[in-house]
């Protein structure tokens, strides 16, 4: 039950994108087409899980014992950036297909605040390893869900009459705001 609440909370109530406003850049950048939104979503799930595992381990076995928690942010940034770069090189070498599917989105994730945000939340909340894992995956799923829903809406912009002044990113931000309001209705559902 505890994990179920954690999952619902991470996906809907505290959606990393729409409730916590993290990772807005790729949210607007790659949501024009459903295909790219799905690709980006998968890449985020992959990287977020991996990055949170690493940062959680660092926090637990390195920073806390050595009383270096004040270095958390800068070290997490360093680690995540290096990790994503490494992962990109690795899959480019090992699997061409996987690279085509996920690799092209990795540079977008390198400095993504959603990844850092989840890592820091995990550290702050003091999650255990399984909690951390569930929370990271669920947060990434929540991110993908928001991205895919948004892409579905944006595809319809193509065939809609939009006032010229609002077309493009402007209508995207307006829509994102409305989606965010919609997600606020989940608030209070899980404690």
């Amino acid at each position: 039950m505890e994990y179920f609440a954690l999952i619902i909370s991470a996906i809907f109530v505290k959606n990393i994108l729409l409730a916590q406003y993290l990772g807005n850049c790729p949210f607007l950048g790659v949501s024009r087409k459903m295909d790219t939104a799905i690709g980006m979503g998968m890449a985020v799930i992959f990287v977020m899980t991996l990055a949170t595992i690493i940062t959680w381990s660092l926090q637990r076995y390195f920073l806390e014992p050595l009383n270096l928690v004040y270095l958390q942010t800068i070290i997490f940034i360093l680690v995540i950036a290096a990790l994503v770069q490494f992962v990109e090189m690795f899959i480019k070498k090992s699997s061409h297909d996987l690279y085509q599917a996920l690799g092209i989105y990795l540079p977008l994730i390198t400095t993504n605040c959603a990844i850092l945000g989840v890592a820091i939340i995990c550290a702050r909340e003091g999650h255990t390893f399984p909690q951390m894992l569930v929370f990271a995956v669920a947060s990434a799923v929540g991110y993908s869900l928001a991205l895919i829903l948004f892409a579905g809406l944006r595809e319809r912009f193509e065939i809609s009459r939009i006032p010229k002044a609002l077309s493009g990113t402007a209508i995207g931000l307006v829509t994102a705001g409305l989606m965010s309001l919609a997600f606020f209705s989940f608030f209070g559902m899980v404690a």
């Binding site: 270095l71 360093l78 290096a82 490494f86 090189m89 480019k92 070498k93 090992s94």
Partner: peptide, 25 residues
């Protein structure tokens, strides 16, 4: 803190340099 960050920077730098050599396409 300074030493640690410097060391981490060097470690990651070397690590990525090695990795880019190993995984060079």
């Amino acid at each position: 803190a300074l030493i640690l960050l410097g060391a981490l920077g060097i470690i990651f730098g070397v690590f990525l340099a090695v990795a880019s050599k190993v995984f060079y396409v």
